[in-house]
Computed example of a mutant assay.
Amino acid sequence: MAEDCIFCKIANKEISADEVWRDQDVVAFRDINPMAPVHVLVIPVSHIASLDQLQDQSLAGKLILTASELARKLDIDDSGYRVVINTGPEAGQSVNHLHLHLLGGRSMSWPPG
């Protein structure tokens, strides 16, 4: 755990969040500044600063499969959804804790920005 990391504090239940998933490895919660009707952040419980720091293939798969399961659970799987990982400040990563954005519930264009 990184002491100043807000996502570590959410994972450790020191800060409350609107959780939609929790197991021993992964926590998912609604984004407080949603960019789509469904906008959920999927994070590892352990502190990993970014995708560049991820070494565990099993955890990588679990994060992606959790996003897919949540898309079904949140009923956005039929219409389509997007999973985004921002890595580094130039890409828009604002919290230095690996997180996947699960976005859905509206039409999305390409390229994203």
Rank of each mutant, 00 (worst) to 15 (best):
I6C: 00
H101L: 07
A49Q: 12
G80P: 10
G113V: 00
V45I: 15
G92D: 08
S107A: 12
E69C: 10
V83M: 11
V27Q: 07
E19W: 00
L59G: 08
A28K: 11
I48C: 06
K13Y: 04
N33V: 05
M108F: 12
V95H: 05
P37K: 11
P89I: 09
K13F: 11
M1Y: 03
M1A: 14
E14Y: 02
I6K: 01
G80M: 08
V42K: 04
P44W: 06
E14P: 09
E3V: 01
Q53A: 15
L41F: 10
P111G: 03
G105S: 04
G80K: 10
D56M: 10
I10D: 03
D4H: 13
A17Y: 08
Q93F: 06
R30L: 08
D52Y: 09
Y81A: 04
I76E: 00
N33H: 14
L51T: 03
H47I: 03
L100Q: 02
M35K: 15
I43M: 08
W110D: 02
I6N: 00
E19Q: 07
D52K: 14
I43G: 10
A60L: 15
R82I: 01
S50R: 09
P111M: 07
I48V: 15
S68K: 15
L54N: 05
S16N: 13
H99W: 03
M35N: 13
V27N: 06
L65R: 14
W110G: 01
G61K: 10
N96H: 12
W110M: 13
V83A: 03
I6R: 02
I43D: 09
V42L: 07
D52R: 14
V20Q: 05
I64R: 01
S94Q: 13
V20F: 01
L63V: 04
N86D: 15
Q24T: 14
Q93T: 08
C5Q: 02
R106H: 08
T87D: 13
V83D: 03
S16A: 12
H47P: 01
I64A: 11
H47R: 07
Q24H: 13
L41D: 03
V20R: 05
Q24P: 00
A17V: 04
V83K: 04
D77P: 00
P34D: 09
H39A: 07
Q55L: 10
D23E: 11
G61N: 14
F29C: 13
D23H: 09
D25L: 13
H101G: 10
A36H: 08
V38Q: 06
E19K: 14
I15N: 11
S107G: 12
I76P: 04
H39D: 03
H99F: 05
V45A: 11
L102W: 06
M1F: 06
S50W: 05
A17T: 05
V42Q: 04
I64L: 15
S94T: 15
H97G: 04
V95T: 08
L63H: 01
E69M: 13
P44H: 09
I32N: 06
I64C: 03
K13C: 00
W21F: 15
K73I: 00
V95Q: 06
L103D: 00
